[in-house]
Write a protein that binds this DNA or RNA. Structure first.
Lengths: 147, 147
DNA sequence: CAACATCATTTGATTAGTCAAGTTAAAAAG
DNA sequence: CTTTTTAACTTGACTAATCAAATGATGTTG
């Protein structure tokens, strides 16, 4: 009874790495006074705005409830605005968020990238991306409710 | 100002995948009435017991405070026992945990593995593991406090 | 138009984690 | 021996999420 099929070793590596790099990213983003989760959500809003909470929840792989709470925080901080629009609430960034992102985005993207660029060459990065894309896409397919 | 250096695409994939597979794993482990985080901690205890909270915290990449709270929950559920031993608290599994793990471990490891085995061949899995190991190890080196 | 159905969002209870300040137990110093 | 130091652990205040039950907003129907 050992802890080591190849797959389970990969799983553990991925979990530990994302966990750790997430913490480092939180640390990095302190200079912009935001967290990794918040940055992620703001980025998605920036790309797709205006959009509804349901749509946003789906983009960041979070539940309805999760996105609701997150948006309350972001609204309180003055990063976003929501307005009731039919049954739906439509979300968009404030100028404050836009201007912070203009600064934070290139730095954060460079920070994220550095984890890979500093150790892997272009070729290896492409391989990693391709493999993870396949794995991810497959896991999404699986998620379909069993009939 | 686009969202796509190769590195940042990899980062996003990893985050989304681990996030999602973690949720699926939580779902899977419901049958054993535990969560992925709990399973992970119990496994580490099982391998290294008896050990201290500090050692355990380091193994699962969590803070002192985090492990303290987690162990309170696990103790309340009757999965572990802690006893004060010198300044330190020594952690070990109860029979209850041992016997649940005996059942849950092979199933959970198979579940984790399936994410990779079902889409990647042996060769590709090895490549993925090697690349992620390099990336992870490098990120740990970086973590050293700046002098 | 009041009652119902429906879809989007919120909320209460809980797990999981962070940081930083507070305890506690044992050792070293006075 | 009491006092101070130190290492290990806990705790308060908080972010982030989950699930499932409750609200809100808008249509539809008797």
């Amino acid at each position: 009874m050992r802890n080591n099929t190849l797959g389970s070793l990969i799983w553990l590596r991925l979990m530990r790495f994302t966990n750790q790099s997430n913490q480092m990213s939180n640390d990095f983003l302190k200079r912009f006074d935001m967290t990794t989760a918040q940055f992620d959500v703001l980025m998605q809003i920036r790309i797709y705005q205006p959009l509804t909470q349901m749509e946003l929840a789906e983009k960041v792989t979070v539940t309805q409830g999760g996105i609701s709470r997150m948006l309350v925080r972001l609204e309180k901080e003055g990063y976003i605005v929501r307005k009731q629009d039919w049954k739906t609430k439509t979300i968009s960034l404030t100028d404050k968020a836009e201007s912070i992102l203009k600064q934070a985005m290139p730095e954060q993207l460079a920070f994220q990238s550095s984890f890979f660029e500093d150790v892997l060459n272009e070729e290896e990065q492409k391989t990693l991306y391709t493999l993870m894309t396949r794995v991810h896409k497959y896991s999404q397919k699986r998620e379909l409710p069993p009939e």
